[in-house]
Design a protein around this nucleic acid. Structure first.
Length: 219
DNA sequence: ACATTAAGTGATT
DNA sequence: AATCACTTAATGT
């Protein structure tokens, strides 16, 4: 037990040192549960009851909304230093999740039990800021997602999707199929193929089987 | 060489 | 922008 706690402490210092104060890190290390998930595993399904919230050390999780007919739409990604504050509210109310979380790139995370989350809000300023910032950031991403759906043309949406992927993976070379993109964007493969071809011809991307290189993107 | 999976295309709604 | 039906190209065994 002692060994495990010190391992968690090290991990937290490595990834969250600039966010959390030492006393909080000690508490997190005592109550947190360290877990590793592989790509493709589901962290959370719609309807699951929330018992823990994740602090992501490494890797990437994508958060999706799903309708009754298994159609999915990508909402946002969680990466290092992120948590899902939305799930935190669910925790406190003991409500079921509205979202689905799937591992996009192998993750290491520390799971914090519900019981502590609430009391730490009053106790630790850094924890309070962390949760509020996270909530704020998630909201901004949601608004972007709505804008994209409501106002942008397919080609603009796709380019935003691709450039977001580039930013997150720090790599302009993406390994992805048209079908996977269609799933994330709740579109059809044929439509994606045609828009990809258009962007390719415009010189904004370079695409081959299973690969897309993003040539033009702006911060 | 063959089977499987990804991508391209015209026609239609 | 979506769907159908089909073709063509790339890749794995």
């Amino acid at each position: 037990m002692e060994k495990n706690t010190s391992f968690l402490k090290d991990q937290l210092h490595e990834h969250f040192d600039d966010i959390f104060e030492t006393r909080l890190i000690n508490e997190l290390a005592q109550t947190g549960i360290y877990k590793v998930y592989k790509k493709g595993e589901m962290l959370l399904d719609i309807g699951d009851e929330m018992t823990h919230i994740p602090l992501i050390l490494t890797g990437l999780v994508k958060v999706l909304r799903e309708d009754q007919h298994e159609d999915e739409i990508l909402l946002y990604f969680l990466e290092e230093q992120d948590t899902c504050a939305i799930s935190f509210v669910n925790c406190i109310n003991r409500k079921q999740s509205m979202f689905k979380g799937v591992v996009e790139r192998d993750i290491e995370a520390i799971f914090i039990p519900v019981e502590n989350i609430d009391s730490w809000l009053a106790k630790y300023k850094s924890w309070r800021h962390f949760i509020i910032d996270s909530y704020h950031f998630r909201l901004i991403e949601m608004v972007e997602s709505i804008d994209s759906l409501a106002f942008m043309k397919m080609s603009e949406r796709l380019l935003k999707y691709l450039t977001d992927k580039v930013k997150i993976s720090n790599n302009v070379d993406l390994e992805i199929t048209h079908q996977e993109i269609a799933n994330d964007m709740n579109s059809s493969r044929v439509v994606i193929t045609r828009v990809i071809k258009q962007l390719h011809d415009e010189g904004k991307i370079f695409s081959t089987r299973n690969k897309i290189k993003v040539l033009e993107f702006h911060e």
